[in-house]
Design a protein around this nucleic acid. Sequence first.
DNA 1: TTGAAATGTATGATATAGTTTACATAAAGT
DNA 2: ACTTTATGTAAACTATATCATACATTTCAA
Lengths: 66, 66
Amino acid sequence: MTKNLRLKAARAKLDMSQHELADAVDVTRQTISAIERGDYNPSIKLCIRICKVLNVTLNDLFWEEN
Amino acid sequence: MTKNLRLKAARAKLDMSQHELADAVDVTRQTISAIERGDYNPSIKLCIRICKVLNVTLNDLFWEEN
DNA sequence: TTGAAATGTATGATATAGTTTACATAAAGT
DNA sequence: ACTTTATGTAAACTATATCATACATTTCAA
C-alpha cells in the first residue's frame, strides 16, 4: 500500500496532531497513523468522518486518477 | 444505515447487473447487494474499484453533503 | 408455463479493520 | 536534565467486512 500524504497535509494545514484528529473522528491515534502510512484500508464511513473534520471531500483525500 | 441509490443508478446507467459489477470488482454479488441496501460499510479501496468500473468518482457515489 | 436472470436476504466461516496497551525516538520547553 | 508532545510501530485482542452457500420472489423471454 502507499502512504497517504494528502491526509497528512490536510491535517497539517489545520495544525492538528494525529491524536487530535483521532479524537475528533473517534478512533485511536494508531488508526490515523496506520492510514497515513498506508498500512490499511479504512472504511468509507471513517473516510467521510475524516474528510468532514478536515473540511475536504473524499476526492480530495482518497480519489486516485488513472 | 441508508440505501445507496446513487450506486444503483450508476450501475443501471451502464446496464450492469449486481452480479456483473461484483465480478468486475472481484467481490461477491452479496457484497454489492449489501452496499446498495446500506447494510454495510465498504472499504475505501472497494469503493474506488467500484467507482472506476462505473466511470464515476468517490464524491459521485459516496460523498454526502449536509 | 417453464426456466433463467436479477435481486433480497440469512447463516456460519474467515480475513482484516480498529482497539488497547506498550515501548521507542525526536523535538521543544522549563 | 527532565517533561511533554508528536509520531512510528508491534502484539494480542475484538468487531465487522466479506465469502460461500443457500433459499425465496419477481420478471421476462422462449
